[in-house]
Design a protein around this nucleic acid. Sequence first.
DNA 1: TGTAATGATACTATAACAGTATCTTTATGT
DNA 2: ACATAAAGATACTGTTATAGTATCATTACA
Lengths: 135, 135
Amino acid sequence: MNLITRNTDYAIRALCYIVKSNKDIVSVKELVEGLKMPRPFLRKVLQELNKKGILRSYKGKNGGFVLATRPENIYISKLIEIFQGPIKLQEHTFKKKICPEIKSCVLKKKIDEVENYTILKVNSLSIASLLKTGK
Amino acid sequence: MNLITRNTDYAIRALCYIVKSNKDIVSVKELVEGLKMPRPFLRKVLQELNKKGILRSYKGKNGGFVLATRPENIYISKLIEIFQGPIKLQEHTFKKKICPEIKSCVLKKKIDEVENYTILKVNSLSIASLLKTGK
DNA sequence: TGTAATGATACTATAACAGTATCTTTATGT
DNA sequence: ACATAAAGATACTGTTATAGTATCATTACA
C-alpha cells in the first residue's frame, strides 16, 4: 500500500530540487544528474507537471523547466491527485459493484474517518513546507 | 489505493455474519448464500483465518467454522496484517532501494505522521465494535 | 461406506505501477 | 540557414499485487 507512488515521489523531489537550485531554468539533464532518476520516466513526470500548470517548460536549446507558481502554492495533495487520482483509502466496492450496504456499512464509516484525517493532513503539505522543515 | 483489500473485506463480512448468526457452526455454503460472495475465494479466506487462529474449522459432514476467540479480541488491524501484511502507507523506496535520504527525508517524516494515526485508529477497531456501532 | 464438508495447492486474469523507446517539434548559437 | 540540444507526444514492455478459479486430497458423520 502506498499513499505516494513513484511518479508523485519523483515529482516532489524534482520540484524541491528546482526550488533549491535557484536557477532561472533547470533541464532534465541536470535533474537526472542531481537526483539519479531514470531519465525517460522523469521526463514523463515533468511533462505532466507542465500540462497541469505546476511547471512551465521551455523548448529548444538551453530549454528546461521553471516553477509556474510559488512553492507555497504547490500542495502535495495536488501532486497525488495528478498522478494517482483523488485521494481515497477505499473504493468500497463489493464484487466490482458498489457495496450494497453503502449507506449503512459501518466499516466504511470507520475507514472514512481515517481517510478524512489523511486528506486533511496531506492538504497542509506544500513544497515550501517540506523545504522549510527540512532545514 | 485501498487500505482494505477484497480478502480482508470478505473476512470482516464473514466474521460479522458468523457472530450475528448465533449458530454453533457455520458452513461455507451458508456464508455464500448469505453474503453473495464467490465461493472458492471465500473458502481460501476462511482457511487462512483458521490457520491464523481466528476461526476454528470442523471437517466432514455438517462441518464448518466457529470463532476461535471472542469478537472483542478480533481486531481489524490483525485481519489487515494477515491478508495484506504490515500496515504501511509507504515503502519509501527509491529506484528499488531504500530512499538514500531515509534518515533526513522530510516527506517520509510527514507521511509517517499520517501512517501512525492510521495504525492507531485501525487498532481500535474490532469485529465487536463494528457490530455494536452498526445497531 | 457414501457424501458433504474443509484442506492444500496450483493455475489464470486483470489492472496499476514503473519504466523504455522512438519519433516530432521547437528554439538557439554559430 | 542549419546543426544541435532541448522538450512534446505517444506507443510499447515488464513486473507485481489483487482477485479469482479449478482440482484433488482428507476427514467425519449418518
